[in-house]
Design a protein around this nucleic acid. Structure first.
Lengths: 253, 253
DNA sequence: AAATAATGTGTTTTTGTTACACAATGTAGG
DNA sequence: CCTACATTGTGTAACAAAAACACATTATTT
């Protein structure tokens, strides 16, 4: 029950370590088997699912909190992270009663206060992630973006906003470097775009536009093993990709 | 000294009313004499300039805090407000010492704690605003966007981010309804766009594109009084404008 | 009354987007 | 082993949008 003591301490004494009233919630996107996935946690008590989240340490940069939380859940470094919105409805956690059966916890306890949460979304390479529950949860796993269950509080709404935000960003910034393995095929990249945009794109026009961005490098290898004609492998030119991320693109389907 | 008591109470006992560690800062844009303006406040103590800001009441929606703060500074209702970014660097207010000479205030006081601030920008009709200082400031006035002084903390950076955010939003949403008087000319609208984008736009192409959006109504009147040929007056079709705000546009120069 | 400076309008050129067709190739099944 | 199939690779024509550009009109100033 070492872990239980840890979570109890956290709930009772969190205000010694963390800022009050402020939390961070992350929508962690991955891409696997031609599907966009999101990493969710299952609560110890109620068994409900939620977004991975956490709190801001007293002297920690807000962005660093998001990075730390992500690292703890995915065991990964260097992930793409973007702050997309703050959720500040005083009623957003109105059914926060899952802790009240805990010894020593009252309505005035730190954790029972109102929290304003800062939403981040992350793009990670699915295969490199080993999902790991936090002290308050029993399970951590990927969910298909089309099959998300009812989540606690306003987390469904946060997730929807994150997806919308990611979608809009596709017109200004390239995507893929953080979601795909180092080497990938054009059809794979296209499926990623189609999945995020939830929209079919013409194969030839997609390739034309993508190559025109000048951030892709075609390798001499082809991807073998699959059925049918072997497609070429590509990889991102990191320098040019990052330049595109800084400057922004004009890119719209 | 009634006002001084008020500000002292605020600094010492703010934590009875407001959430700790969270503030709101607003970049209030106006448009006057073909220039984009920003409303700034001058501090009582140090005489430095800053963005209008405030705190979130314990049971208040974050957005409502921004609305309240704006109303207090501008005496205006129904302004366009947009949350654009959170600033969470623990060092962002590192030189917060303007209060320390206040009787009863210590380093542990509420106001001396670290604050994470949520940035909003507002678009308001210049002529309808009567700038009003808050309890902590002695002056409130418009500044030309190109002549902003050194502001406290990270407020210059917040302002720059707001402008950048507004600039980017021009590609997705129309602007003008909140910044211009009810009736305006095409050259005035164009100057607004040029000022925000800091870029010259072809007069004929601008008009073509604007009219194509279908959110403008040309009046029979012309604007008289100025030198040269009298331009037509236009006004926004409110319903169509709001529809465009909801749906978003494809609009880019 | 003429000069000036700004507005009103339309056409051409260029660029980008969309729609579409056929040849090439690796695997699976007979 | 050969054929059918599904998928990849490539190019072109039609269309739409953006950029470049010119001339007539009009209110004020000189």
């Amino acid at each position: 029950m070492e872990r239980d003591k840890e979570s109890k301490d956290f709930l009772l004494k969190g205000d010694q370590t963390y800022l009050s009233h402020i939390s961070v919630d992350s929508v962690i996107f991955g891409f696997h088997e031609d599907q966009l996935k999101v990493l969710l946690l299952k609560w110890k008590g109620s068994g409900q699912w939620c977004l991975p989240g956490g709190f801001v340490m007293k002297d920690e940069h807000l962005d660093d909190s998001a990075i730390r939380i992500l690292k703890e859940r995915t065991n990964m470094e260097s992930i793409y992270l973007k702050q997309f919105q703050v959720f500040g409805d005083p009623q957003r956690e109105r059914k926060k009663n899952e802790f009240l059966n805990l010894q020593g916890l009252t309505k005035n306890s730190w954790i029972m206060q109102r929290f304003i949460t800062v939403g981040y979304y992350a793009l990670v390479e699915f295969s490199k992630v080993t999902p790991e529950p936090d002290v308050l949860s029993v399970e951590c796993k990927w969910w298909d973006i089309h099959k998300i269950p009812k989540l606690i509080y306003d987390h469904n709404s946060i997730l929807a906003t994150a997806l919308d935000s990611l979608r809009r960003s596709l017109n200004d910034y390239p995507v893929g470097y953080n979601l795909l393995p180092e080497k990938f095929t054009m059809p794979e990249l296209q499926t990623l775009y189609e999945t995020i945009l939830d929209k079919a794109i013409d194969r030839r026009n997609f390739q034309k536009k993508m190559l025109a961005l000048g951030i892709l490098e075609r390798l001499k290898e082809r991807k073998t093993g699959g059925a049918h004609k072997a497609p070429f492998l590509y990889r991102f030119d990191k320098k040019k990709y990052e330049k595109a991320m800084k400057q922004g693109l004009k890119f719209g389907f």
